[in-house]
Design a binder for these strands. Structure first.
Lengths: 362, 362
DNA sequence: TTGAAAGCGCTAACAC
DNA sequence: GTGTTAGCGCTTTCAA
């Protein structure tokens, strides 16, 4: 935009020539003020400005120094999706809170899954990578690892020698299901987020579970089923609807679940976004939450405590997850470290006990 | 993390030597498959892998080619703030929606305002910059412009020769105020976001307005005042509380405004975040919105239509703003372009008419 | 189809 | 305090 007719950028050498001095001195004027007399430096800087010098070329400097001052972030999902997902945003916020004081920039790398090449990863000029929530055996992950830069994987299946940050999804999900069971719900419905990378939406059967590749979606599902088994409920009698992780996914999944006989009295949503969709579906059907339908989410995004009824959910430390990942990367320990963050069931207004006869008590 | 004892990275030349061929051929194996026989290429790639080659060094390649494949985004505010602001997020989402298909990465550059140097900007390895909402005469803006790269400024005061994207804040704000005046509100209160970069919070007087440096905050204020003047109301009688642009700012500002005599019957908030805070304050005080207090926001963030009462607000195309900015940057027109996007007053549930006696009608 | 040579713009050693 | 020299690792002519 600015350079209508780029007249060949001015370089350090041009300035040196114009002043009849050496490149080194000009370089020092920019990078090591103490290495030359103030007035000389003054003159050099003035000349540089007059000649329209843009400052030392970052790429060239980089080739010498090797220090980029940026870390790459790779999301499994598309970027527009990531920037619309409160969970991903909170994660980025955590990364940013560590990067900013460290004067480190954040390179958000698109994957462009459809294409053949992953060259955005190969071309990324960064000191290290954070990989967020990629499926098992992912080409992008392999590409990142191949760069041989310091890397931290978040919410991914463990890879030997690579640091990781995660939560115990299975245990957390079990707590959510156990909560509903404790409230005497026996007819549950589950809304699952994507179990693998294939756009499938619909009912989840054993076959589908067996071929799941998104580790934390699978773990949450297993956690739900753990709780049912412990309570003597047969998980196979609990319908599971898989949807893309958006509010509208939760909406249609809920309609499908509530259409069944016997109708579920409670819904386990694998994310708060799905749970919010479930809430809207109940509203549309004229069902009171929690009196006629209990809903439990997962994540505890900011909206969970802002909507009415406030959402009962599993809190995971979203912002902290990003901060920990960034710290792990920047501090670059000798040994890979696996951090597991704690979760907590947050009881709010969207879940309530059920009576013996299937109605609800308070 | 991965390279515990970095054994000096393998280069193109190492592979060439190992194979007894030239660097060029190895380079071609990676970048120009058609320039050599498939089996030769196969062998080279295999050897490279075996030797632990991480692929062509992006920095070195860059120095030759000059094409980074990344654009820099500079926020006036701190990064953790930006990632908690729905407006900034939507803007990033718009940028991402254009960058992803263009296989372009997003470098989010922290400014670290406190420090002396802006070297994060100087070191940023990018093809161009998007500057978002910086105050007039900003050092960071100057630093970016000095890089002499294609640049697009968003929600900033115009700079000659630089493309820009913005809305007509003044006109949009006037519509918001005119709406309330049309509903017969005469006792208004205004919640302003930061007018300049000095952490000030409190009442806004003429002096403060005269020294404002955030152009779009000032413009919104002027728009409100335009509407009042057109209606024959004296803007000087309308109290203005300035706060940081967060929900809690809107909350305390509303408490302050409602403490005055005569008490305002309607509040103009310069952002939806502030308006949400105002809503909470009304809730806390036991005031019904809109029956006892009307509230009008600005931006139309997603939450505005999700909370109850749904927020009357001025919609600006947040996502599109980012998309347009990114397109302007990537398409890199010869002439600088100034895009002004349209806004629209969205009537929802948080505003209502006032009766002659100061009570409210429906 | 392959190779040799040049050099992108800069900074780090080291000599003056 | 200043200058000379030597690359950083790669891609790109151009010649073979």
């Amino acid at each position: 935009m600015n350079d209508l007719n780029p007249p060949k950028p001015v370089t350090l050498l041009d300035i040196a020539k114009a002043l009849g001095i050496s490149r080194t001195t000009v370089s020092n004027a920019f990078n090591r003020p103490d290495q030359l007399s103030p007035d000389r430096r003054e003159r050099i800087l003035a000349t540089a400005k007059a000649m329209g010098y843009s400052g030392p070329n970052p790429t060239a400097r980089l080739l010498r120094t090797g220090q980029v001052g940026a870390i790459g972030v790779v999301f499994s999902e598309s970027l527009p999706y990531a920037f619309s997902d409160p969970v991903a945003i909170a994660f980025l916020q955590g990364i940013a809170s560590v990067c900013e004081p460290a004067k480190t920039s954040l390179l958000i790398v698109p994957l462009h899954r459809g294409g053949t090449t992953l060259d955005t990863v190969q071309r990324a000029v960064v000191d290290g990578f954070i990989i967020y929530s990629t499926p098992d055996t992912d080409a992008a992950t392999a590409q990142v690892l191949q760069r041989n830069l310091p890397t931290v994987m978040v919410d991914c299946s463990p890879v030997v020698g690579v640091s990781s940050v995660s939560i115990d999804d299975r245990r957390a999900a079990r707590a959510a299901a156990a909560h509903l069971i404790r409230l005497r719900h026996t007819r549950l419905g589950i809304i699952a987020m994507e179990l693998r990378f294939d756009q499938y939406e619909g009912i989840v059967d054993a076959q589908r579970i067996a071929t799941a590749t998104f580790p934390h979606a699978l773990a949450r599902l297993q956690g739900y089923q753990d709780a049912m088994q412990e309570a003597g409920l047969d998980p196979r009698h609990t319908p599971i609807e898989e949807r893309v992780n958006r509010e509208d996914g939760g909406f249609t999944a809920t309609l499908a679940l509530l259409n069944r006989t016997p109708r579920p009295t409670a819904i386990l949503a694998m994310s708060d976004r799905l749970a919010v969709g479930a809430l809207r579906a109940a509203e549309t059907l004229g069902l009171n939450v929690p009196q006629e339908l209990s809903i439990v989410g997962f994540d505890d995004i900011p909206l969970a405590s802002q909507i009415r009824p406030r959402l009962t959910t599993v809190r995971q430390p979203l912002v902290e997850k990003g901060a920990v990942a960034a710290r792990l990367l920047l501090e670059n320990f000798d040994q890979p470290i696996a951090q597991v963050l704690l979760t907590e069931l947050v009881l709010r207004e969207s879940s309530e006990a059920v009576t013996e006869n299937g109605d609800v008590i308070n």
